[in-house]
Amino acid sequence: MNPFIVCEHVDFGYEDQDAVIDLSLEINPGDYLCIVGANGSGKSTLIKGFLGLLKPTAGRLTVSEELRRGGIGYLPQQTAAQKDFPATVYEVVISGTLNRRRNRPFYSHTEKNMANKSMERLGITGLKKRCYRELSGGQQQRVLIARALCATKQMLILDEPITGLDPSAIQDFYSLIRELNQKDQMTIVMVSHDVRNIVSQANKILHMQQRALFYGRAADYAGSLAGRKFMLTVHGAGKTE
């Protein structure tokens, strides 16, 4: 199968600032790619590029026809305003089908079915009529994943998904994502700070600092120079806190 996304020496920038420099990578169907790096290292910018919200300033970023047709499920960082938003779980989930419908004003049967299936897949059908703001962090996360699944059958992009989850919810979340990756053949691209867990979850790792410091198999990352340094700083910082 063709790769979903190919970057060849891609640069991204805002005004006079380079956010991503000379990045080359390939995302193949079935990949579980994790993007790590310090704040401001260009991770979110790269994701915007994948989603087609930013154009590269140099190089070439190719998104396969297949991926473009099937759509990408995106899970953005949660905002403070969302935490107490008055919306039912169903309303949130079905808004994921929005990319399929350009200018029709109302949802059709197909979309309602998709939303129901997606909720079933994540085991939140029982929460359908509940209010989003009354759910726990882990449940809210599941709702947002269900919404993202409405938008795609092939690729999820998650931006710092575990922020604000408690430890048991984090483990739940990782096993859910692994299941989606292995059982449902979902391609996963995740931005995260949680390096320790990531190494055991993902199969590919991209460590960014504007440029790619490391790009390769997750198993090799722990042994690499970039990986050792990063894990040391992240965990060191964690201990002093």
Partner: peptide
């Protein structure tokens, strides 16, 4: 509010997601 209700919901609830959905 009647004809663009779904889009208004998406934009209000989550701008980033709405943007990625092509709204």
């Amino acid at each position: 509010f009647v004809f663009c209700y779904n889009k208004i919901f998406a934009v209000t609830f989550d701008e980033s997601f709405a943007k990625a959905s092509g709204v």
